[in-house]
Design a protein around this nucleic acid. Sequence first.
RNA 1: CGAGGUGUAGCGCAGUUUGGUAGCGCGUUUGGUUCGGGACCAAAAGGCCGCUGGUUCAAAUCCAGUCACCUCGACCA
Length: 480
Amino acid sequence: MDKKGNDQFVQHIAKRSEDFPQWYTDVVLKTDMMDYSDVRGCMVIKPYGYGIWELIQQQMDKRFKETGHVNAYFPLFIPESLLMKEAEHVEGFAPEVAWVTHGGSEKLAERLAIRPTSETVIGAMYSKWIQSYRDLPVLMNQWCNVVRWEKSTRPFLRTSEFLWQEGHTAHATFEEAQEETMRMLEVYAEFAKNVLAIPVLKGRKSEKEKFAGAFATYSIEAMMQDGKALQMGTSHNLADNFAKGYDIQYLSKDGKLEYCYTTSWGSSTRMIGGLIMVHGDDRGLVLPPRVAPIQAVLLPIAAHKPGVLERARELLAALRAAGIRAEIDERDQSAGWKFNQWEMKGVPVRIELGPKDIEQNQAVVVRRDDLQKQFLSLDALPAQILTMLDDVHEGLYAKALGMREKETITATSFEELYEGVQHGFVRAMWCKDTACELAIKEKTGGASTRNMPFDEPAFSDVCVHCGKPAQSVTYFAKAY
RNA sequence: CGAGGUGUAGCGCAGUUUGGUAGCGCGUUUGGUUCGGGACCAAAAGGCCGCUGGUUCAAAUCCAGUCACCUCGACCA
């Protein structure tokens, strides 16, 4: 690269098309979102990245309140005996649990697991709290951190410690639990669309991939720009599996002792990784406006000239008064340098204000998504920026949806399916997912029915998702 | 856990083949000129060459061990 920079921050990033993993890492590190810590696989989220997370939290929490959930907090440590009560759950999580063995210098009589997820502790509490059908449903959520000792890690996508929310609910019947499971899956899908500008597929996971201990697991999956799938939220119907393990019972109206039906659902800082990989381009990050910590950055041009800075600060105040998260960059750097830096950081809208603009009562406004430049009058600028932010959101969503549709094929044979998942999603028919007996019925092609050789070795690295939207088709994708 | 790669200044790297004063670019600090797409000049600061041991008069460099990180597998609600 022949471009010169006067800040280490301004370095070229890898070409997205040539080296997607490297591009992703570059974007994460060079946009000042996170850093590596000394503990392997643990991330440090820096203020810019955390700002995104705060906006995600706010907007998601608002949705949880609307669906009647309340926030609570449960312990970080889970005694080993408590964790062991649900057999499938233990088996699934055992390989990735971190253990506390000592308190100070004394060895503990019983090891403490650092929560990989909280069904177990929360189940134990629910067992105390729930006595009667009048106590149901219990609808709670907690925002917290969890630890999973992963073998390999990637920033935001899979870290040893991560931040998330986990919802835990208890209901009187299986049907109510199922309804809750689907309701929250829908909340996630709506959130992905309207806040993150990411189109997602809703689907049910295969038996092999479902949450350890769940009756059924549903997820939302998005396609990244390399064609791979990323799970961006899950919702589990736990049926009465955990209620039986943790003795969550209630006395029904007609005086019978019954087990509860529980659900759990979660989404994490992985969503940040997802939005980087869905929207980013060769210039760096592209943030969807609703989670952008800075929605509009104001760059005074030739700021040393009289009046420029003053006018720019007035404009900043006007933007903020309109509810726009705006910042001004008054640093003593060249204009070109600032353009590049804020583009890399993905700020949705850039506003340039120089002496010539002030003369003509206008500003130069540039959208991050298409880099189109326009000259707008200063008078109505805040209102126009607000509209523009919505346009950017819609534009990003449409672009991501277009990409996904382009990279999704419909398969009518195993060969097509296998070929398709190498670079995108595949639509294929799904019947029932029972252990190793899987059958595919062709529907879209309208032709014959055949059995799918799911036990072929080539298929082992394919992540299977079953979605059941309107057209009743099935989605398969190669996953991260 | 398998295969490959990398550890040298805040960041990116050269130097290791052939042992001999620790180098370059960017950034940082100071002063000045600039300022509408990655500015320029001048000066300065900044290093347990991942760690441990060995060979040697002498090790960033050779040998052995070890640790960490990265990529790809495996694994992963």
